[in-house]
Simulated scan of single mutants.
Amino acid sequence: MSDNSTQMSFRIEVGERRFGRINWLGLQTLAGREIKRFLVVYTQTLVAPMVTAALFLLIFNIAIGPRRGDVMGVPFMSFIAPGIMMMTVIQNAFANTSSSLVISKVQGNIVDTLMPPLSGLEILLGYLCGAIARGALVALGIGLGMVLFLGLVPAHPLVALGFVVLGAAFLGGLGIVAGVFAEKFDQMAAITNFVVTPLAFLSGTFYSVEALPPVLYAISHVNPVFYLIDGVRYGMIGVSDSDPLFGALVCLGATAAITALAWQMLRTGYRLKA
C-alpha cells in the first residue's frame, strides 16, 4: 500500500501529460517569473512606454493638432490617442516574450524553462501571461492619462479591454515565435524594426484608412493589427473604420494561428533543445 502511495504521489508531483491535465503550480511559477521579470525594471518596461506615448500625443498636438480638425467626427487628438495606446501595448507585449526567450538562449539558461515538468501548452500560457500583464498595465497607465488630460472617457470599456488582451496575446505569441527563431540580439532587433514597428505604424494608428489609396486600403484590411487598433478606437471613442465584431473575429483567428505555431515550437523544442 505504501509503495502504491509513493508511486501515486510521484505521478502527481511531476504531473501526467493527459488531455485536460494542467500543472497549475508550474504554470503559476512560470507566469509569476515572467511578470516579476518586467516589474523589477518597471521604469524601463512600464514607465518608459507611457512617457513615449505621452510624447507622441504632445508632439502631434503641437505640430498638427490645432490645424487638423475633426476626424470621423471626433477631435484629432481623441482619434489618435487609442491608436497610440494599442501601438504601445503590442510593442511591449512582443518585447516581453521575445526578450525573455532570447536572453535565456544567449545566457544558456533556457534549460531552466525546458527541464521542469511543463508541457508546451503550459510554457506557452506562462509566457503569454507575462505579455498580457505588461500590455494591460501599459494600457491602464495610458488610459488614465487620456482620461485626465484629454477628458476621454471610454465609450465601451469592456470592448477596449477585450481588444487590449487580444492584442497582447497576439503579439506575445508572435514574440515567442520570433524569440525561438532569433539566436542573437541583433536578429531580434531586425525583426522588431522591420516587422513589428511597420505593422504598428501602418495600421491606422495616426490616420483613418478611409483616406488611403485603394491598394493600401486593401492591404490594411488584411493586417490583423489594423483591427486591433480599430477595435480599441471603437472601445475608447465609439467610432471605427470597420465592424468591431468582424475585427474581433479576425483578431481571434490570427491569435489562435500564431499561438498554435508557438505551441508547436515549444512542444517540440524547435531551435531550443541542443
Rank of each mutant, 00 (worst) to 15 (best):
N4P: 13
T6I: 11
T6Y: 15
S9G: 14
F10S: 13
R11E: 14
I12V: 09
E16K: 13
E16G: 11
R17G: 01
G20E: 07
R21W: 10
G26M: 02
Q28C: 15
Q28D: 14
L30W: 10
A31I: 06
G32L: 01
G32H: 06
R33K: 10
R33T: 14
K36Y: 15
R37C: 11
F38K: 05
L39F: 06
V40A: 12
V41Q: 15
Y42I: 04
Q44K: 04
P49E: 01
V51A: 06
L58T: 12
N61Q: 14
I62N: 11
I62V: 15
I62C: 14
R67H: 15
G69K: 01
G73K: 09
F79I: 03
I80Y: 02
A81I: 14
G83W: 09
I84F: 03
M85P: 02
M87Q: 15
T88L: 10
I90Y: 02
Q91H: 05
N92Y: 12
F94N: 04
T97M: 11
S98F: 10
S99F: 07
S99M: 10
S100N: 09
S100K: 06
L101T: 05
V102D: 04
Q107F: 10
V111N: 14
V111T: 14
M115A: 06
P117Y: 02
S119I: 10
G120K: 01
L121N: 07
L121A: 11
E122M: 01
E122C: 07
I123T: 11
L125A: 13
C129E: 03
G130Q: 06
G130P: 08
A133S: 08
A136C: 15
V138F: 04
V138L: 04
V138A: 08
A139I: 08
A139G: 09
L140I: 08
G141E: 04
G141D: 02
L144W: 05
L148R: 11
F149S: 13
F149Y: 12
L150P: 05
H156G: 07
P157A: 02
L158A: 09
A160E: 03
F163D: 03
V164D: 01
L166N: 03
G167Q: 04
A169F: 11
G172A: 12
G172R: 09
I176Q: 04
V177L: 06
A182T: 04
A182R: 00
E183C: 14
K184F: 03
K184P: 08
Q187E: 13
M188I: 05
M188S: 07
M188D: 13
A189R: 14
A190W: 08
P198C: 00
L199V: 05
L202K: 06
F206T: 11
A218W: 15
A218F: 13
S220N: 09
S220K: 01
L228V: 07
L228A: 03
I229H: 13
V232M: 05
Y234P: 00
Y234L: 03
M236P: 02
I237W: 03
S240K: 01
D241I: 03
D243F: 00
D243R: 00
P244I: 00
P244C: 00
A256D: 07
Q264K: 14
K273C: 09
A274G: 13
